[in-house]
Simulated assay, not measured.
Amino acid sequence: VGLTVFFSWRNANKTLRSAHTLKIAEMRQSWINSLRDAMSEFQSYGVTPGVSQSTERKFYELGTRIELLMNPKDPDYDELHKCLYQFLAVNDLNGKYSAN
Results as ranks from 00 to 15, higher is better:
Thr48Tyr: 02
Leu84Ser: 00
Asp92Lys: 12
Val1Asp: 10
Leu93Gly: 12
Lys23Ile: 07
Val47His: 05
Thr4Ala: 14
Met70Glu: 05
Thr55Pro: 02
Ser18Val: 04
Leu80Tyr: 03
Thr48Ala: 05
Tyr60Arg: 09
Ser18Asp: 11
Thr21Ala: 14
Lys14Ser: 13
Asp76Val: 09
Asn100Ser: 10
Leu88Pro: 06
Lys58Thr: 10
Gly2Lys: 04
Phe6Lys: 13
Thr4Gln: 12
Asp76Thr: 11
Ser54Glu: 11
Ile24Pro: 05
Leu22Tyr: 11
Asn100Arg: 08
Asp76Pro: 01
Ile32Trp: 04
Trp9Lys: 13
Leu93Tyr: 04
Gln43Phe: 01
Gly2Tyr: 06
Ser44Gln: 14
Pro75Gly: 05
Arg10Pro: 07
Leu68Gln: 07
Ser98Cys: 10
Gln86Glu: 14
Tyr97Trp: 11
Val51Pro: 02
Gly50Asn: 02
Asn11Gly: 08
Val5Glu: 14
Asn11Pro: 05
Leu35Asn: 01
Tyr77Gln: 03
Met27Ile: 11
Glu41Asp: 13
Phe7Asp: 05
Tyr85Ser: 06
Ala25Ile: 09
Ser44Leu: 13
Asn91Arg: 09
Arg28Asn: 11
Ser34Leu: 09
Arg17Trp: 09
Lys14Met: 11
Val51Gln: 03
Leu35Met: 06
Ala38Ser: 15
Ala25Pro: 03
Arg36Pro: 09
Ala12Leu: 11
Ser8Ala: 08
Ser34Lys: 11
Arg10Asp: 15
Asn100Pro: 04
Arg57Thr: 10
Lys23Pro: 01
Leu80Pro: 00
Val51Asp: 00
Asn91Ser: 13
Ala99Pro: 05
Lys82Ala: 10
Leu3Asp: 15
Asn91Phe: 11
Gly2Arg: 04
Asp78Phe: 00
Ser44Ile: 08
Glu61Thr: 15
Thr55Ser: 12
Arg10Gly: 10
Leu88Ser: 07
Lys14Phe: 07
Phe42His: 00
Asp76Tyr: 04
Ser8Leu: 06
Glu67Asn: 09
Gln53Glu: 00
Arg57Ser: 13
Ala99Gly: 05
Ile24Asn: 14
Tyr85Trp: 13
Asp92Tyr: 06
Asn33Tyr: 03
Ser98Val: 15
Leu69Ser: 12
Leu69Lys: 03
Pro72Val: 02
Ser52Asp: 15
Asn71Ala: 07
Asn71Glu: 07
